Simulated assay, not measured.
Amino acid sequence: MADLKLVYAAPTEETALNELELFKDKWDSKYPKIYKSWHDNWATLSTYFKYPEAVRRLIYTTNAIEGFNRQLRKVTKSKTVFPSDDSLLKMLYLATMDITKNWTGHRQDWGQIHSQLEIYFEERLAGRNL
C-alpha cells in the first residue's frame, strides 16, 4: 500500500504515472490485477489530479467514512432480521444521530478546502453553509 500511495498522493499526474510504472516493476509479478486495474481505469482516476492537493487529500482520506460505516455495521450486526425496511431505516437514523453527537473535531485546513470546492463546484454549493 505504501508504494500505491506514492501513486495517488503524487503532486502531479506525470509523477503519478511514473510511480505507477515503478509500482508495476516491483509488484506486478505478485499482484498483476492491481496494476491492470489502475492502468485500465487511468483516464477516470487521473481526473482527480485537476484538484489542488488539499482537496485530493480529502478525497483519498477515507478514515472518517470508514469509521462511520463501522459504527453503523456495529449497530446492525446484532440484529440479523428486521421486521420491515422502515425499522432498519429508523434504526440507522437513530444510530446516525448518536454517532454525529460525538463529532466535534474539525479539519485544520477546512477553510482552504471549502474555498477550493466553491471554485470547482460553485453550482452545487451555491447558498450552502458548510
Rank of each mutant, 00 (worst) to 15 (best):
S87P: 01
R124S: 15
L89G: 08
V55N: 06
S87W: 03
F68Q: 01
S115C: 02
A126F: 13
K26F: 04
Q71S: 03
Q116R: 02
T76D: 08
T80L: 14
L20V: 00
L89K: 07
L125K: 00
A95Y: 09
R70N: 12
N63F: 14
F82R: 00
S115N: 10
R128G: 11
S84H: 04
A43I: 02
M1P: 11
L20Y: 03
E118S: 14
V7R: 08
E21H: 06
V75P: 01
A2T: 09
P52S: 10
S84A: 06
G105F: 01
Y31K: 00
N69M: 11
K5N: 12
E53D: 14
N69A: 05
D85Q: 13
E19V: 00
T80D: 12
L17F: 04
D28S: 10
N41K: 00
F82L: 03
K33A: 03
D3H: 08
Q112G: 09
S78T: 11
W38M: 14
T47C: 06
N18V: 12
R128H: 15
Q112W: 07
F49N: 13
T104K: 10
Q116L: 08
L6E: 04
S46K: 07
F121H: 15
Y8I: 02
L72E: 01
L22V: 04
R128E: 05
R57G: 03
I119W: 11
E13W: 05
A9F: 10
L92F: 06
P32M: 03
F82Y: 10
A2G: 06
K36S: 06
K33I: 00
D28T: 01
N63K: 11
L72W: 02
R56C: 01
S78N: 13
Y51C: 04
L4C: 07
S78H: 15
A95R: 00
W110R: 02
Q112T: 12
G105Q: 10
M91Y: 05
I119H: 10
S115H: 14
T15C: 12
K77V: 02
W103I: 00
L6G: 06
Q71I: 07
V75Q: 01
K33Y: 15
P83M: 03
G127P: 04
E14D: 15
D25C: 09
E53V: 13
M91N: 02
M1Y: 01
P11A: 10
R57F: 05
L117C: 08
G127I: 09
T12S: 15
S78G: 12
L72P: 00
Y48A: 02
E13A: 06
K79F: 13
T76P: 06
